[in-house]
Design a protein around this nucleic acid. Sequence first.
DNA 1: TATTGTTATACTCTATAACTATA
DNA 2: TATAGTTATAGAGTATAACAATA
Lengths: 176, 176
Amino acid sequence: MDREATRPGGDKRPDTPPPAGRPGPGGGAAFLLAQLGAHAAERFAQRIAELDLTPAQAGLLRLLVQNPGRSQRELADALGMPPSRFVPFADGLEQRGLIERRRNAEDRRLYALHLTDQGLALLGRLRDTALAHEQDVTQSLTPEEHAQLTALLTRIAAQQQLTPGVHPGYRTLRGR
Amino acid sequence: MDREATRPGGDKRPDTPPPAGRPGPGGGAAFLLAQLGAHAAERFAQRIAELDLTPAQAGLLRLLVQNPGRSQRELADALGMPPSRFVPFADGLEQRGLIERRRNAEDRRLYALHLTDQGLALLGRLRDTALAHEQDVTQSLTPEEHAQLTALLTRIAAQQQLTPGVHPGYRTLRGR
DNA sequence: TATTGTTATACTCTATAACTATA
DNA sequence: TATAGTTATAGAGTATAACAATA
């Protein structure tokens, strides 16, 4: 849509002085990160919606394959959601046969969550989707630039003390 | 918190095969973008909260300084929010004396929104905050790497057809 | 007494759709 | 009839806190 063409009235008295030369933010790396990050997250959410998964659900599957048997409280903490919200969240995946709750024999207050075979199979398709997403996002870069970008982002993530593999978008339950 | 130390029971029967070598996603550029983007947006929201501004409010101020006199509908579209939500959103900024509604003489259905002197002054402080934020996020990079990162992200943003200066986080009203 | 999992509830944010005034 | 701005409202998503079972 052309915004200039459909502008009815308004710019007759530009009483605020024009912003000199450059607008300031909007072109900085931090802003681009936020903008592109939101965009990438949105596109990824759209892609995995075809697998009937939300970003948070995908995050849980990946957590479970990395170390199975974690308790619900631990997993809720890792995903950044309160335990009360984790319950219906896990319910959905359990009813679909993707994860399994097993009572812990030593401490019967705890559940140990495990991936089912079906869940493991879905995780495979999830990885294919993630790979396609990666290629989509970086299609304008050469292989060298792609590696360069990954290296720079990895360094920033480490310096900002972000936990690998988990991001704040997991806190929400929304598909998009 | 050390998650390993507080793990009660669970990992006695790792019935799912270990994930071979690399975990797959989580280390890709697309995932890092989403993770770092959410982090950067969160930090920025915290910073500008000291100016009593949300990211969406900051976005509106920047839109208004770039071309004043736009109608509410245009601005709502640019920010990605429905007109009904824009009304109380603009109300808040108007009551604080940061923006001004002026009736359009040619089409009296329209309001032309303008930045007040006070709004312009706050925008100045906002730019200082954005600069500090930029430096915080990129503090682990050399000036050359910083420029490199900005160039790579700019290229991706253009290829993904993102509108400069606007990002989807503006759709929400939440301070954080 | 403390902790895990669960449920109940109140609250916030949101989009949809009516309404008005102008065109 | 169509559009800008506004208001009303119902729905979704959320966190807080109470609860039962186990330690």
